[in-house]
Every structure is written in C-alpha cells, then in structure tokens.
Design a protein around this nucleic acid. Structure first.
Lengths: 261, 261
DNA sequence: AAGTGGTCTAGACCACTTT
DNA sequence: AAGTGGTCTAGACCACTTC
C-alpha cells in the first residue's frame, strides 16, 4: 500500500483526529484519539447502554487504523467500565441495569450472607435552590435549581441507610416523587434510562458521626448511635458532576468494604 | 525461521511452562505464564524492590517469546503495582520506600492542605499467642506465635490514629520495639527491607464506633467521640495474609478518601 | 549512538457464540 | 461456516534517557 516500505505506519488519523486544524500542539497516541472518538459516540447515545457496539474490525475500518489500535482503545474503556467485552459475542455498552453493576458504588456489605439490594422509602422529594456547598460540589452557581431527595433504605426490613441527594435541575428535569417510587431497583438505572445520564465514576469522603435525633428516628435506633457518614460526588462523561449524595450508614450488621491494590 | 509458514506462532513455552508434565489440563495464555514466571522472580528476590528488572527484549529472549507477549505480562504487573515502568529507563520493582507509595494503603486525608505521613508513638510491642479471630484472619492456628504492636499516630502533633497490629511470628522473627522506634517512615518499608516481605494488596472493612475510655485517653478526646474503625488484612505474594491491622481514626479534621470506578 | 519502554501495523491462529 | 473477541508474532518507528 504505502510507497515507502520503511514506513508501514501510514497513520492517517494522527494528522486530523484531534480536529483542531493542524496548528494544535496537542499530541496524543492514536489509540487515545480513537478512545476519545468512541467515548463521544457513547456519550452522544449513538450506542445506548446494553447495546452492542460495532466490532473491532468494523471500527478499525471506520477510523482507518489497525484492529490492534482499536483493541487498545477498547481495552482502556473496558478497564474503566464504560464497555464490557464478551468473547464470541462482541462489546457492549455498560449499563446500570445489571446485578453486577448494583454494588459498584454502594460498598455497604452484610457481615453475614450474600449482598442484595435494599428497598427504598422516600421521605421527601422537592425542587429547591442550591445552597453554596452543594453548588460548589456540583459545579453550579449558588441558587441554581436542584432536585432534593431524601430517603431511607432497608435490608430485610431493617432501616440501615438514610441519605440525601442533590441533582442538577437542568439534567434531571421532570424527575418526580412518583417516578422515583414506582421505579424498582437502583436509581442509577432510572437516571440512565429516563434522563440519558450514566454515572461512570465517583469520589467519596467518609467520616464517623453520631446519629441526630431526626436520623435516629428514621433508622429506629437510639440517638448518638455511631454512624458512617459518606459524601459522594458522582460524575458522568466529561468528568461532569451530576449527583451529590450524603449518606448515613448504620454499621452494626453491615460494613463498608474496600479493596486496596 | 519456522518451516511452516502458516504457523508463525511456534510457542515453545506453551508446551512446558505449566510445568505439570503434559497431562495437566491447565491451559492459560502464554503471557499469563510469563507473568507468573516474572512474579516468581520478584517473590524470590532475584530482583529486589527499587531495582531494575531485565529489559523486555532480554526477557523475551530468556523466555523464548516475542516482546509483545512480555509486554502484556508486564502491563498487568504494572497495573497491579508490582512493578513500575519508566520510559527510556526501564522497569523497576515497586518499593514502599517512595512518597507515592505511602498513601496506597493509608487513605486518611486531611480536610485541608496536602497529605503528609504521620509520626508514630509506640505504646506496646510484644510476642503473644494468636487469639482465634486473629488466627483465622491471618490463616494461622489458634495459639501460633504472633507479634502484637499498638501505637498512636499523629498529624502535626495531633493524635489521630490508634491502631493495633498482629504479625505472624515466623515471618517477622526478630522484630523488636527498638527496631520499630528507630525506623523512620512507613512500617511497610521496614518490613520490605528487613524482613523481605512486601505488601501487595489488602482488604478493608470499615465501621463507625464510639471511643472507649482507653482509646479516648490515647487520642486526647472525650469518651464516646465517634471514630472510624478499620480492619485491614494485608497480603503478600501468593495471596498470603501477613498483617492484621485494626485502626481507629479520628475524622474531625481528616476523612477517609475513596475513588469509585 | 545505543538502549529502554511506547505505539502501530499486518497477519495468523485460537476460543467462543451464533447461524 | 461465519463472526466476535483473545492471543501471539515480527518488524518498524517514536519518545525518552543515558553515555
């Protein structure tokens, strides 16, 4: 193909995939550019959660690179849990509608027995203006519209988690208490299906606190019981913060599990 | 090279690297076998922490495989933090004697300012027989010799962590209070240098508790202050448990930080 | 200039799934 | 049989470090 046999890498994408017009000094490996292009298609919804994406060969042809380069791009996307590979079948867009995804962000495990997803009881759902601290964490302006949710979660009928959520009003326009209550399973499934917003990573800060009178009543425990307090900020594509969640966990029959590598 | 041009993969290691003698049905990819061989050399101390391991080309020649196969093996070892790659220089055996390694297992971060390593004050160091629960977690027999350590750690002079450690007596034979006290920096550095034992991963269970009278005195806080309780089991090569650590963290000016991916 | 890891290609074959 | 991801090879060139 190439007229210069000493240059088997004719790399057509490298010259333009950045899309900056040629004067950009932004160098990055081809496979990173391919990864970015695939991520764009995931974000735009060209391939929806749970669906099959084009095969490696097909993508290689589309982007005019070798299959190996596409492979390396998809390898990283799979490591980041954006896609899942299944040998013989293809590569699928990750979805929250899967048992294995349910405990990716909820790390509270029972001391005994197998983990299962808790039942929710909603205490409050309302629209409000973002307080300063919430606005800062969600990258909004103080006073911007947010949706506030408060709920209690129970394992086997035992109230164990009380949490408050703040969601950007713009992203989750139309979210109502009814919608939340009728929906079975993790909230992230609802966000993904109904609002086209997938959580792809989160940061969490954990502390120990004691239960206030109000929280104690909700969890049906004595006031001043020690609780684990988690503040979690979840991000969607483009590192955009789209959820702030403050949870209190009763850790008498459960614990927060972590793997350190 | 090969007399059969349709079979460029002459894969000599695949036939014997399992070492089982031919009747073993244990198939695994070549790069996994290479990875296991490299791990053995790390474990045996052929290449010590901080040292340079042979180059990819050299390892490829040694194992009679292609450089790409060695690369894939080392890629995984680097992902597991067993080795570190440095472009232009080579691949190094990971070590705990590095600032970036100090916070791999200690996830307690200051609410404000940059993290730095705490100072230790040892309360107690003694040999004892393993209680049942400790023995179970360390994969020992109840009554086996263990070394017990209790210490308080402070950030900027503020007592923040009180922790108890149990170590298998056999692995850490000769560990004394003097040795611990004179050693500067993370204990894992001492374990690595003096006892040839490197921690490579850990599992952690976290709960909220309230301070006992004794712990409160050590941390100079009121009794019943909420504390974060961590139980951590650390593993060395071959998934062998070699440390049980139970820590109590004061989370008034610090928090446990976690990234969820 | 020489050596190292990092990227990219082209092509073969294997393991697994579906038709 | 055909299609998919998974492994392996061989060879080229690039980016970075050291001599």
């Amino acid at each position: 193909m190439s007229s210069t046999p000493t240059n088997p890498n004719n790399n057509p994408a490298a010259a333009n995939a950045g899309g900056a017009g040629g004067s950009s000094p932004t160098f990055s490996p081809l496979y990173q550019q391919i990864k970015a292009l695939i991520t764009q298609s995931l974000q735009s919804g060209e391939w929806k959660p749970g669906e099959l994406i084009p095969s490696e060969v097909e993508l290689a042809n589309r982007f005019k690179v070798s299959q190996g380069t596409v492979r390396k791009a998809i390898d990283e996307l799979a490591a980041e849990n954006l896609v899942m590979r299944k040998q013989g079948k293809g590569t699928f867009v990750s979805t929250h509608h899967e048992a294995r995804a349910h405990f990716r962000f909820l790390r509270l495990m029972p001391d005994e027995g197998v983990p299962h997803y808790p039942e929710s009881k909603f205490i409050e759902v309302k629209r409000m203006r973002a307080p300063a601290d919430v606005a800062r964490l969600l990258d909004l302006k103080s006073g911007d519209a947010v949706i506030f949710v408060k709920r209690v979660q129970s394992f086997d009928g035992v109230p164990t988690i009380v949490e408050e959520l703040w969601l950007p009003g713009l992203t989750f326009k139309g979210l109502t208490a009814e919608r939340l209550e009728e929906y079975k399973g993790p909230m992230y499934g609802l966000f993904e299906s109904e609002f086209g917003t997938r959580m792809i990573r989160a940061t969490e800060k954990i502390r120990a606190v004691t239960a206030s009178e109000g929280d104690a009543a909700l969890l049906k425990i004595p006031a001043n019981t020690p609780l684990l307090a988690s503040e979690r900020v979840s991000f969607t594509y483009g590192d955009k913060a789209v959820e702030l969640r403050r949870g209190l966990y009763l850790t008498e029959r459960h614990h927060y599990h972590n793997e350190l590598n």
